[in-house]
Computed example of a mutant assay.
Amino acid sequence: MGMAIARALVRTGDFHVTVLEKEHRVAAHQTGHNSGVVHAGLYYQPGSLKAVLCARGRALTRDYCRDKGLPYRELGKLVVAVTEAELPRLDEIERRARENRVPDMKRLTRAELREVEPHAAGVAAVHSPHTAVVDYAAITEAMAQDVRSGGGSVLLGQEVTAVNNAGGAVHVSTPAATHIFDRLVVCAGLQSDVVARMVGASPSPAILPFRGEYWVMAAARSHLVRGMIYPVPDPRFPFLGVHFTRGVYDDVHVGPNAVPALAREGYSWARVSLPDTLASLRWPGAAALARQHWRMGAREISASLLKPLYFRQARQFLPELQPGDLARKAGAGVRAQAWAADGSLLDDFAVDRLGAVTLLRNAPSPAATSALAIADYVLEHHLQIAPHRLRS
């Protein structure tokens, strides 16, 4: 997200752009740990920023990959209702997809969904044939090169330790130097509320880290999945549930689940940060969130710790799946879920501005799909740079 905005600023020709990246490589966290899906806009509330910018972002991502020679595979997605009880929720997905003008979306019967995914089980489905997969880390590397080629700088291993947003200029300190900027755009992901406090912005929304764990299907059994098989999402939760995704390099991933991470960058149960955990427990909305979602949390944590429970969640969509088909764990990603002081989880993209500083406070999925469109949106609506000024 940050690199997309940096690229957009460089393309105006009006700014010298410097990117400060905490890690020693780009895409080290959310960008490099997601499923690689380019969403078509099935789920999102019509008229929301997610819906509008996902549609625009999908087209921009497709074109960017073609221009750069990066892989872009339209494998298609099935959202499957396993039981009759899920049909009303599938109806709502279909309604939203039609309002969002998802291209070539179609409602499928039981027989028709088996034509798309012969091994899938369900009573009905919604099919999005233009949902695609990419390598977001490669895209980010390409955008970083665009920034450099346009005269900007990408400084790696430069963790921001302090921000002074006063006196008409923004002083940003790292262990190596203090940089002085006319404007600062904060795209800090899992650390976005930490940097927001440095800037003097509201501590709300805070970031609640959720880890999503993946399994890789055995290569000999990966033929059971042609593209993507997703559950009908439960509107009470901000997560889609365990699903099957054939990746851009042809491996099939199962997951992710959603469990509370015990550190902002906690990619396993062994990674624990007491300050991060205490900050989550002390947040004013923690008790309300726990009361509302404890059953879901207990179920997800149990499936994380016990492979048979994880397998059971997956097998309802793929009855031929065998325990050995989940060949190995494929690591995990941590989602920066923004939550308010009342315990509610923010759903839509959220951007704040404090003087010369613009802060992305919430950028959940489909932020990767939407990144290039979000960049244009931030330039136009928060930096007052009209899109027509961007160089081709």
Rank of each mutant, 00 (worst) to 15 (best):
E94M: 09
G36S: 11
R312G: 06
R73K: 12
L184T: 14
I385R: 04
R25S: 13
H388S: 07
F210I: 15
S202H: 08
I229R: 01
H119K: 08
A386L: 06
I374L: 02
M1E: 06
T131Q: 13
S365K: 00
R110Y: 01
S280G: 06
K22D: 10
V194P: 06
A219I: 04
P71E: 13
A176F: 14
R353D: 05
G57P: 00
P364V: 00
R101H: 15
A85N: 10
H293D: 14
E141C: 10
R295A: 12
W294S: 15
F244Y: 11
A162D: 12
P203H: 10
L390T: 05
V116R: 11
E141I: 05
V195Y: 12
A97K: 02
G150F: 09
F311L: 11
A218P: 01
L383K: 04
A120M: 06
P209R: 07
Y377H: 14
P323K: 10
L262D: 06
A288F: 06
Q30Y: 09
G241Q: 13
K77Q: 10
G343T: 03
D376R: 03
V185A: 08
V80M: 12
K50M: 08
A288T: 09
T174G: 07
L354D: 09
L274I: 15
P129R: 12
D135Y: 10
A219S: 13
P205N: 00
V351S: 00
H16E: 07
P118K: 09
A188W: 04
G266Y: 02
L359F: 07
D250K: 11
R114V: 04
N100Q: 06
H388W: 06
C54E: 00
P175G: 08
H382Q: 03
D14H: 13
N100D: 05
V163P: 03
V254N: 03
G168H: 15
F244H: 01
L155E: 14
R389H: 13
Q384Y: 08
R197Q: 12
S273Q: 15
A270N: 10
L113A: 07
V232P: 00
W339L: 12
V199Q: 08
L372P: 00
V52K: 04
G167E: 08
P46K: 09
A137M: 11
V147P: 06
G32W: 10
I301K: 04
L321R: 00
D251R: 15
S222Q: 02
A111W: 07
G57C: 02
T18Y: 10
L289A: 15
R264T: 05
Y44N: 01
H388K: 05
R56K: 15
E117T: 12
E159G: 10
D135R: 08
P175W: 04
D347L: 02
F317H: 11
V272G: 08
D347P: 04
T369W: 00
A368Y: 01
